[in-house]
């Protein structure tokens, strides 16, 4: 299916945010992690849409919502190459920059099953460090260091 055809299937957005170029399979996870359905706004999701350069992709449109800078940065951990466009009156008025955050709170669970954060009334918290080869995340509680891909894969 070409871009054009799916564009017709997904309704145009008057005001809000389009998260595009999400690697196929991550769309629902992003919807869930960022609780995008909890605002009571209309959300349109496209899964396995064909995309010229990335094969299949997912796409999310949320009406009347702009991601905070913090959310956009957290999104960079999950899908660093996705694009976040802010729409006003059917026009893209700005692309949000995604920068890997220095810290992330209450978004991912710690992959260490013996970490106390799973059983105590605390929010998960990781400090993030970008190294030459990898992005590492260190749990504030158990102090274990994980490759970013391991942390974001934990359900």
């Amino acid at each position: 299916m070409s871009e054009k055809v799916y564009a017709r299937n997904v309704e145009a957005l008057k005001n809000g945010t389009v998260i595009d170029h999400i690697p196929a399979g991550l769309g629902l996870r992003i919807l869930d992690l960022f609780e995008l359905t909890s605002y009571g706004e209309r959300v349109t999701v496209g899964l396995n849409l064909s995309s010229g350069h990335m094969g299949n992709k997912d796409l999310i449109k949320v009406e009347n919502l702009v991601l905070t800078e913090g959310q956009a940065n957290e999104l960079a951990l999950l899908a660093p190459k996705c694009t976040v466009s802010v729409i006003e009156n059917f026009e893209v008025v700005r692309k949000q920059k995604l920068a890997i955050p220095a810290e992330v709170t209450d978004l991912f669970a710690c992959p260490n099953s013996n970490c106390v954060s799973h059983v105590e009334p605390v929010q998960s918290h990781f400090s993030v460090r970008v190294t030459e080869h990898d992005t590492k995340m260190k749990c504030k509680y158990c102090e274990k260091v994980f490759s970013k891909d391991i942390v974001v894969a934990v359900r």
Partner: peptide
Amino acid sequence: RHPKEGAARVASE
């Protein structure tokens, strides 16, 4: 002393 990793940090909070 506690068997779970991070217990002392939680306690300090």
